[in-house]
Design a binder for these strands. Structure first.
Lengths: 178, 178
DNA sequence: CAGCGATGCGTACACTCGTACACATGGGAT
DNA sequence: ATCCCATGTGTACGAGTGTACGCATCGCTG
């Protein structure tokens, strides 16, 4: 809003919340744990975010922006000559290459919308935004199905503790893309 | 394992846990809330399930059995003449027809494996079992992809608050099935 | 420069939770 | 018949939580 003594404070609290969720999961997220991680007093977190849901909304939105940037950087996605399925499968490969940590964190925030209606609009923003990005290469319905399949593949890896198989992902994404 | 004064007690606690998760989510699951729902004293829940993870494992396993039974009942899944994609899309239609409650509950238990390694083997059991069932109609890789796509479609419905579109699901499942 | 609202800070309270533990009881083994 | 242990019960404690509230401090506004 207007000026603040510490204009960065709100943002630093969001960053701290993301680190806390990454380290301890949403179950470990509390006003106090965030305050400690951000090195601000307890009252400061409750002032900027009246409820934990508000904080989660901000964290999910930032997480979405991070991923969206990764996809925008992938120029090949807009190149009509490139193999769309292969590009997407490669993207997921990079996504998992840095360990499960990042994927776990971002999916945990995303999946939190299941039980928190307040998060659903933000989750929908991400789905719609990504679908629009992919719509430059296919029709909207196919774009949504590609996202669904990517989500499902990631979940199988994350939930069962398996390994990501890029060739398999490429094959199946290719079938959907047609 | 051997005789108990109340041989049903353990089972009743699991049922109560499922009801609690359905009503308040995993976040609302505690030894006390389960004990109240099952109408047993607090000490009884901590005796049968040393940790909440143990209780979640039992609940997820029971939830899996419920869904597996639904799939077994669907004889068309083994009929080589039937349209596999159409059958699966119809199955999901029934799944959502009774409201979001049941799907929310079962997915919440399933997704809990993301942050609880103890649940991953149980989640993997479900994936493997379903894949095996579907393998009577296609190759194993395609079976897994069908499950992934179904998971992704369900998630899009549940996370964004949208409606389930059976025709769309059938079309996309058909592309994967080939 | 005076005042006022936004922002920041510290503390206290009521509540829930997991856990531990002492004790009761019934059933199967010897 | 006796004993032992799995099972069942009640209570207490310490830790952690959300929330509220009073006070401090800064910056804009008039």
């Amino acid at each position: 809003m207007t000026r603040r003594y510490d204009p960065e404070r709100r943002g630093r609290i969001i960053d701290a919340a993301i680190r806390v969720v990454g380290a301890k999961g949403i179950a470990g997220l509390s006003h106090r744990s965030v305050a400690a991680e951000a090195d601000v007093p307890l009252g400061s977190t409750t002032y900027h975010f009246a409820s934990l849901d508000e904080l989660l909304i901000a964290a999910l939105r930032r997480s979405n922006e991070n991923f969206a940037e990764v996809m925008r950087e992938c120029e090949a996605l807009t190149d009509p000559a490139a193999d769309l399925a292969g590009e997407l499968a490669g993207l997921l490969g990079e996504y998992f290459s840095g360990g499960r940590g990042r994927a776990e964190l971002e999916y945990e925030l995303y999946l939190a919308a299941l039980r928190r209606p307040a998060l659903r609009p933000v989750a929908a923003e991400w789905t719609d935004g990504t679908a629009e990005l992919l719509s430059r290469r296919t029709d909207p319905a196919t774009a949504r199905a590609l996202i669904a399949l990517m989500d499902g593949i990631c979940l199988q890896v994350l939930l069962t503790g398996g390994e990501y198989d890029e060739a398999y992902a490429r094959e199946m994404l290719g079938r959907v893309a047609g």
